[in-house]
Write a protein that binds this DNA or RNA. Structure first.
Lengths: 109, 109
DNA sequence: TCGATACATAGACGTTTGTCAATGTATTCG
DNA sequence: CGAATACATTGACAAACGTCTATGTATCGA
């Protein structure tokens, strides 16, 4: 026997799709970045600037800036300069993209 | 002014929750593991053994075994020995956990 | 019992990641 | 202008990660 399972049918995601999806998940796969996203979403006006995250996160300013950059480059967060500060907010569409990619296949399965 | 945003209200996830959530996302945040999950979910009987993944993934057997271990330890995949083979299948609840953690806060926001 | 097959483990190695201190840039205010 | 503040960038370093080869373990079939 050269095949232990019934042959794989089509329908798996291709390598390109997987390579596009992985960085989005990777951007969220960090405790600090999860908390940043959570802080942004639970902020009264849905946004916040980096300076107010230092204390609750207990990390240095450059480290937080680094995490915000990762989130920004993944498209999960957007920053808008307002005078001296940059107001960051979550891009809900990206979170929905992730959630949608994980569930629909369950429906069609 | 010592505060540029309105004060953060409660509601963010705590550090422990973030530390529990991150590994689950990290397990999925890899192109190969995404494809493994996809292969398992699109298999006719919802399961598959490692040997049939080598060719489509184009990776060595130990590497695939490593990725399956990561997925197993994250609880995203379960393996059951059947004679000479181990049949792996996705644990849908874990995927739903992830999807649920990303969307509900959007509803309550 | 012996060979073949499926899978796991160990060790090695280059790459990526998370963190920090130090420094740079831009904006505001006196 | 000059000092202070918010944020970004650089460089360093240890830890974690993905991959491989080599080897170990377990199961089946002849």
């Amino acid at each position: 026997m050269d095949q232990c399972c019934t042959p794989l049918r089509e329908g798996e995601i291709d390598e390109a799709t997987a390579r596009a999806m992985a960085p989005l998940l990777a951007a969220l796969a960090d405790p600090v970045r999860l908390r940043i996203v959570s802080i942004l979403m639970s902020a009264p006006d849905g946004s916040c600037c980096g300076c107010d995250m230092e204390k609750p996160l207990g990390l240095s300013q450059p480290t937080i800036s680094h995490h915000l950059k990762v989130l920004r480059e993944a498209g999960l967060v957007e920053g808008e300069r307002q005078g001296r500060w940059v107001h960051y907010r979550v891009v809900p569409e990206r979170l929905e993209d992730i959630a949608a990619a994980l569930t629909p296949q369950l429906v069609s399965a």
